[in-house]
Structure formats: C-alpha cells, structure tokens
Design a protein around this nucleic acid. Structure first.
Length: 915
DNA sequence: TTTCCCGTCCCTCATG
DNA sequence: CATGAGGGACGGG
C-alpha cells in the first residue's frame, strides 16, 4: 500500500488491488503489585490478507501469526522454555528478556506487516491505553511506526492516535452496535456470537497471569490461550459482518470509515446531510462546540425535550384466538416524506401549532435523501429475490439493505439529538406528532370496522380477530390495510404477523406465539418475548429460565389444569433444587451495566453493581469502567444488611469460606416476582400460590385490593347478631396506644374524630388505618384458610388441618376418637360475620342516633366501608347461601372445603375490562 | 464522552 | 406506616 511500491508504468494495464492486511491484536497484562498498573507480558498477532473490505470473509489458513512474550517482573524464565517453544511449528513464538524488548520487537513486526485493519477486543480505552502507558514509561522512540504518520512527542494521551492511518475495529464496540448480549466481554461474546459452551473458553484475569509463568508448561498454555482468543476475535469479526456493514454505512453517509467503526451514530448522519445540503448550494450550520448549560443534565436523566410515540392502553389478558399484528413500514421516514418535513420547508417554531408545509413547496432535502435511501433499498431487495440465498452477493446485498434501513431510520433520531449539527427539535416533534395522529386514526378506523384493538405501540396495532382460521385472518388484515392506506401516499400499513396465542401483560410487555405459513403450506409456530423480565439481562438466568418455562406452559396447547399443575410442580422443584444447591452458580449471576465511572455515582451504597465494581477495582488488575457490565450474586454474609449491600463477585464467593448464596433472596426477589408477573392474568394461580410453592412466607404476598364497588343489598342490611366477633384494633399513630373499635360510637364520639387516649385525630392518618383494616381482614381470611378442624367431642380435643378420609354422611369423622364429627374451628360463617361486623362499626349513619359529620370524617368512613365491602362483595358465593352459612359448616360434594374468597381473581379482571 | 422518547420495575429517602 | 419523588437500569419501537 505504500506509494513507493506502486509501479506507475503499469498503470495503463489493469492492476490487481494491493492486498489488505488484516491483523488481530491481542495482549496479556500482568498487574504490577507496587503501583497497580498493568504491564504487558504477551502480545499475539494473527494476520490475514484480503482483497476488498466488503469481501473480508473467513478463509483460513491464516497468513501468518506471531506471539511475543516476556516474564512479569521478579519472575524467572523456566530453564526448559526453549525446548517447549520448539513445539510451535507454524506460529512464530519469541521470548524477550524485558518488556521494553518486547515492545520494540512488536513495533518492528508491525512495521513489516503494515496492517491496514487492526482488530481486537476492548482496544479503545483499555488495551491501547495500557500500550500507550508502557510505550511512554519505556520511552520507546519509534512508537509512531505503529501508525502511518510520523510523530515525535510521546505523551499519555497518545492511545487515541497510536494507530493513525490504519482502520481500527474494536469488536467490543461493534458488537454493542449490532447484537444484544448479556455482556460484551470476550468470554460472553464467544457464547453469544460463536455459540460457545459455558466454559469452552478459559478466561484469565490479569491477576492470574503471573502464576502462569511458574513453569514452561503453563507458559505454553498461556500462549495457546492467547492465540486462541485472537482466532475467536477474527471469527466474530466475520460472523457479525462488521467490516462489510461499516463499509456500506460509510458509502451511504459519506463519512470516514474509521469513525464508523468507533461508533457514534449522529456523525454519520451529519455527513449525509452535509453532502446533500452542500450539493444543493446551501450553507450548512456551524458546528457548535458544546453547551456548558447542559453540563448538570449530562449524566442525570434530563426530562424529554418533546413528546414521542403513542402507546395504546393494552387490554391485558391471555388470548387464544388469532391476533393480527399490523404495523407501518418505517413510519417516521415515511412521515417525513408524506408531509415534506424539512429544514427547507418549515420555520423553526412551527411545530407547536401542528403547521404543515405548504403543499406547493418543492420537495425538501430531507425527504429527498430519505426517498433515495428507501428507493435504493427497494432496488436492492428486488435484486435479492432473483439470487440464490446462499450466494456471496446475496449476503452483500442483504448487508447493504440493512445499512440503508439503519441510515433511514436513524435520520429522525438525529433531528432530536441536541448535540447534533442538524438538531431540529421542532421537526422531530412534528414527526412524532404526526405519528401519534396516524396511530390514533388507524385505531379508530379499525374499531369502526368492528374489530377489537387490544394494543398498539408507536407504529403498530394488535387486533383480536376472535377467529382461528389463518387465511381468514389474513383476509381481514388485507381489508384493513386497504382501508388505512387509502388515507396516505407514503405512509403504508402492512401485516406484520399473526399470533396464535398472546399473553399481554403491560405496555411494552408481552409474549406471543407467532404463526406463519411456509412455502409448502405448512404452518410454523415460533415464540416471541417482548419486554418481559426474562429478556432482560438484569435478572438472574435462573429467574429468566423459570419464567420462560412457566411462560411456555401458558403458551402451550395443554389443558388449563395441566398447565397450572406443571407450573406449580416446576416451582416446587426449583425450591428443592435451591435447597439442595443443585443450581449452578452461573445461573445466579445478575449483570448490570455501569453507565458512568463507578467512582462518580452519588449513592454507591444502594447500587450493588457499583459496590462490586469499586471493590473489584481495588484489587489487582480489576478494571470495571463506564459501559462495562458487572456480574454479581447476592450472598448471605452473616450480616443483616439489605440485599443490595450483599452483592459479591463470583470470584469473591468462590474464594470465601463464610459467604453463601442467599437462597431466600433468589426465591423471593428473583423467581417469585418474575413468575407472578407472568401469571398475573392467568386463572388458577396467583402470587400467593406461587409463593406457597416456593416455600415463602405467603402473608407478605397478598396484595391489598382497595376499590370502589357496589354492594349487594343483601349484604348491606344483614339482620344479624354479632357474636364471637373481635373488635377492630389499631395503634394510635401518635401515642402508640391501642384503640379498640367495637361499635359505631364510643359514647357519642366517632372514633375517627378522636383517639381514645390522646388528642390526635385518627382521620389525619387515615391511610394507615385503611391499611390496618385490610391486613386485619386478611388475617381473618388466613385464619379461615388454615382450615383447622376440631372434634365436636370436648373430651377428644382433636385438632387437624387435614381432611379426614372417613365421612359420616356430609361430615368428616374424627381421626382420633373415631366417633365425633369434625367442624371447622374457624368457619365460613365466623369469617363472614367478622367482616360484616366491621362494616357495621364503620357505619354510624345506620344507627338510630342523629349525628352530624364533617365531610372529611364522612369520607373517611366511606373509604373504610369500601374496603370492607370489597371483601364482602367478593364473598357473594356464600352470601347467597346464607342459610347454609347459618347451618354451621359443610363440605360440598366433590369439593375440598372451599374458600368463600375464591372470586378475587375474577373480580380484578372484571375491573380491568371496564377501563 | 452521547439518535430519540415511552414505560416498567427496583431501590432509597424525605414527607405526611 | 404509606406515598411519591428521584436515581438507575433496561427494553420497545
């Protein structure tokens, strides 16, 4: 590639392009215990020739490779090292006497290789800065030979420009842009990108490196590991098609390729627009350096500058009829074209008024550029159809169409980016405004066509067709598509898919089974999870897996009973697996990303990942920085601290005798919330039962249900005598004395107006009383659920919660004395009267006494009654059978002694439907 | 040293 | 004790 090598006399004949030299650079560091800096002990390099950037593809064997190493300070090279090194036939392995010699050797090798593209993992900000630091420390004069520019001043900041003139591809950065992974360290990427098994690649932290120099065998191992890593890096480069994609993006945007590889989306866009505007003779806006005003809002989440996409309220539930998913193809780019939204057609402040450009104006620059992108993409996709899917050019076309789509879609984002040269808040706001309009209009239209819209987000709607015929659903989809598309020129609705099952939990949280028709007419089903905890990296893998297995039950073709049965059984199994330590540690790891340097967090104590990172960075070779994902587990360390302060790195757990996994945390804070959120709309199970299966304290999982419900007249006026009931008791918020409420009036005083022991008005802390009331009622319900039975014979005194097998007619026979009949110790009627009693004491107006109440007091009573009535109303089943209630208690045929409050779940669902 | 906004969830802390 | 605000993380589109 050097100019001097080109033979100008041959330029009239076709000259083959010079080969591009691709070089993987991978280094090993050992920490210096004295000053905690890293020293370089090994550099490996693997090179391969290629003839064009868009044809960089795997075709081993590799051109050449070398590995050079030296021993860490205060370590002696094993004497038999030369013999060992002779094992390497293909790889040139060199031993150096010092780090300085190693660096010089490396520079010389690089100068000869003259690589065009340098590939590595975590180069920017880690490997390069260590390298720069060592070059500086040893004052290596010819450091600039690493680059293609002559430099003389060697300073600390040199790492940014160390390889100027060569493309640098850091696969950590590139992977972040192109794939989603739990973490982006080399080991994790090997699993995500190369499908490696858990321990297929051995990970060595810098602190482990010095040990490897104990004997020549380990040195050999270290060399092999390092060279292997280099091959993994190269394979990932190929697998992710990083270079061809970057090349396409660069071609489209017209920026500098090295900058495409270093990330930074807005710059690409900036160049595209710069070219477009300059071409048309416009003077582009000045690049403003930086606003110091925004300084304080830099890190903390500033509030949005304008409103964005609309999210329709989901109709929560499980759907087993076909759901039609429709969405607008690239909505925002289409809107820009549809309404001719551009710098050239609109004034700065025209967004608030929803003013559109005049129809007579010429097409603006922005819409034109987008149009070009969209049309090119259409062309490329057309070309792809006529080509073998396995061929090379198909691949390349596919990459190009991806790049075109990415560029078109990022156009809008850059309008709203406050640091962009082409920042245009009003244009961005107008685009989203039109987006919201279009989505609402579409929803209304679909509803007018008598279809049920169950959800929609920004550019999509889900329609419950209520039918099960796949072809029929597609017909409906086409009909809707036709109607909607009549309204627009550019904006276009299309069928995106059909769901066989849909579990819709919340906005942006759902799971579905998609169904597609293959070419041979067969139907294929696939699962899709969106936004659920199980797709998030900040939950432990065991919680994700549990959630997934439970979800798969719900989304299966099995019967309801079988599904519930399987779910509960699985949960019980998880519990025993935990108790018997059968869960692999790696399943328990929680990973969280550092969004800033660990030191610059304000409340370090409450953030587990920050604590772990800080502690780890104290150690040798620890290097968690902004952007890294920190893995940790929650341990029982004998302390009483909150779970957030008991997070430890896996290494800390392994090397400690006293640390143990906090099983209870994982069951109650990981498995339980994930599973119960998934099961929320499912009948037959609930948070309580899930907690029960996991062996957790169930009382804490009953949620307070406080809603305004009408009460049946039957319950409103029960002419019943209250015996064997207990008063309502709470502690005064102020004097801490117990207050007993056992009638509507305490003398002539309403209990909400004055505490019985001091002067504070209980009405002033009503929410507390409401809560006490809820939990008191729930305490009684729990008591009922205990299902304790006693023998009628006072002499027998048998108590059990197990239903005897033997019955005398309707009644169970005592298992102890074999003669007496068993009754519930706390029966349905006991419970019913207890709760009714509460209603009675919270209703002074029912009394014959005349009393005037302030609005506040009246509302207070009203609120308390509503809580009580909520529970009473849900017990309608028993209320209807009042006679049965009075008759004592009963075992219904073919049923377990049943709970009168079984209908809570159903009530919750009815409420949701109303909204 | 950064494309946007929307929404859920966890945790802590101040306030009633 | 309940509640809401605020910081943080992360995924959807």
């Amino acid at each position: 590639m050097k100019t001097s090598e080109i033979n100008f006399s041959k330029l009239d004949k076709p000259v083959p392009p010079p080969p591009l030299v691709v070089a993987v650079l991978h280094m090993r560091f050992a920490p210096n215990p004295k000053n905690l800096t890293n020293e370089i002990v090994m550099i490996s390099c693997l090179t391969q020739n290629s003839y064009a950037l868009d044809k960089i593809a795997p075709n081993p064997p590799f051109q050449s490779d070398f590995c050079v190493f030296t021993t860490p300070q205060h370590t002696v090279m094993p004497p038999d090292i030369y013999k060992t090194l002779s094992n390497f036939k293909r790889t040139k392995v060199q031993k150096m006497d010092s780090e300085k010699a190693l660096l010089n050797f490396f520079i010389n090798q690089y100068q000869n290789l003259d690589p065009d593209l340098i590939v590595g993992h975590d180069l920017q900000g880690y490997q390069f800065s260590v390298l720069a630091d060592r070059l500086y420390t040893h004052n290596i004069k010819n450091f600039s030979k690493l680059s293609r520019i002559r430099r003389t001043s060697l300073h600390h900041k040199i790492d940014k420009v160390l390889f100027t003139g060569r493309l640098v591809c850091d696969i950590k950065i590139s992977a972040k842009e192109s794939i989603k992974s739990r973490a982006y360290d080399l080991g994790t990427l090997c699993q995500t990108v190369l499908n490696f098994k858990e321990n297929q690649r051995l990970d060595l932290e810098p602190e482990d490196v010095p040990k490897m120099f104990n004997n020549s065998e380990n040195i050999l191992k270290l060399i092999v590991l390092t060279m292997s890593d280099a091959t993994y890096i190269l394979r990932m480069l190929y697998n992710l098609n990083i270079i061809p994609l970057a090349l396409q993006i660069t071609n489209i945007a017209g920026n500098v390729m090295s900058r495409t590889l270093t990330g930074g989306r807005s710059e690409r866009n900036e160049f595209l627009l710069l070219h477009a505007f300059t071409e048309k003779g416009y003077i582009v806006p000045e690049k403003t350096p930086k606003k110091s005003n925004d300084e304080k809002q830099k890190n903390s989440k500033r509030k949005p500058a304008y409103s964005g996409g609309l999210v329709l309220d989901p109709k929560v539930g499980f759907y087993d009829k076909l759901i039609l998913l429709m969405d607008f193809n690239s909505l925002y780019p289409s809107i820009i074209q549809e309404y001719n939204i551009c710098f050239t057609t609109l004034t700065v402040d025209s967004s608030e008024e929803n003013i559109l450009p005049d129809k007579t104006l010429p097409v603006g620059i922005l819409p034109t550029e987008i149009r070009k992108l969209v049309e090119s993409r259409r062309e490329v996709k057309k070309l792809m159809k006529s080509i073998d899917k396995k061929s090379d050019s198909y691949m390349q076309y596919n990459i190009r169409q991806m790049a075109l789509k990415l560029t078109a879609n990022s156009m809008y984002g850059c309008l709203g980016f406050s640091n962009s040269r082409f920042y245009a808040r009003s244009l961005a706001a107008l685009v989203t405004l039109k987006g919201r309009e279009i989505l609402t209009n579409t929803r209304d239209l679909v509803q007018k066509m008598c279809f049920e819209v169950v959800y929609g987000d920004t550019d999509s709607i889900m329609i419950n067709t209520n039918i099960v015929d796949f072809d029929e659903v597609n017909k409906i989809g086409n009909k809707i598509k036709q109607e909607v598309n009549k309204l627009y020129q550019q904006v276009e609705l299309d069928i995106d898919g059909v769901f066989k099952y849909l579990l819709l939990l919340k906005k942006k949280k759902y799971a579905a089974v998609t169904i597609t028709k293959l070419d041979d007419g067969k139907l294929k089903v696939e699962k899709e999870y969106k936004g659920l905890d199980i797709v998030r990296r900040d939950w432990s893998q065991i919680a994700c897996e549990a959630g997934k297995i439970i979800l798969d039950q719900i989304l299966s073709d099995k019967s309801t009973d079988e599904r519930i049965e399987n779910i509960h059984n699985y949960l019980r199994k998880i519990k025993t697996d935990f108790e018997t330590s059968k869960i692999p540690l790696s399943m328990l790891v929680i990973t969280k990303q550092l969004t800033k340097d660990p030191k610059s967090y304000n409340d370090k104590n409450s953030l587990p990942h920050v604590q772990v990172a800080l502690r780890y960075n104290q150690k040798l070779g620890g290097h968690f920085r902004s952007g890294d994902t920190v893995p940790y587990v929650i341990c029982d360390d004998g302390s009483n601290k909150p779970a957030t302060q008991r997070a430890y790195h896996l290494d800390e757990l392994k090397s400690s005798e006293s640390l143990k996994i906090d099983v209870k945390y994982y069951l109650s804070q990981q498995i339980h919330p994930v599973v119960s959120r998934i099961c929320d709309p499912i009948e037959g199970t609930d948070a309580f039962q899930i907690a029960d299966c996991l062996g957790l304290d169930t009382t804490s999982f009953k949620k307070p249900v406080i809603r305004n419900e009408n009460i049946s007249e039957l319950v409103a006026k029960p002419e019943i005598k209250f015996k064997n009931v207990e008063p309502f008791v709470f502690e005064c918020y102020d004097c801490k004395q117990k207050v007993y409420v056992n009638s509507p009036f305490n003398g002539n005083i309403l209990f909400l107006e004055k505490c019985s022991n001091c002067d504070v008005r209980p009405i002033d802390y009503l929410p507390y009383i409401e809560n006490r009331l809820s939990s008191t009622i729930k305490k009684y319900i729990s008591k009922y659920y205990l299902n304790v039975m006693i023998c009628e014979d006072p002499a027998c005194d048998n108590e059990t919660s197990r239903l005897p097998a033997k019955f005398a007619g309707k009644y169970p026979v005592c298992t102890l004395c074999k003669g007496g009949i068993m009754y519930k110790k706390y029966s349905e009627s006991d419970l019913y009267f207890q709760i009714s009693y509460f209603r009675h004491i919270f209703d002074p107006s029912q009394s014959s006494k005349k009393i005037t109440m302030s609005d506040q007091i009246e509302e207070g009573y009203q609120s308390l009654r509503e809580i009580v009535e909520k529970y009473l109303n849900h017990s309608a089943y028993s209320v209807v059978n009042l006679t049965e209630l009075f008759s004592g208690f009963l075992i219904r045929d073919s049923q377990q002694p049943h709970m009168i409050f079984s209908s809570f779940q159903e009530m919750d669902e009815e409420e949701d439907e109303e909204t």
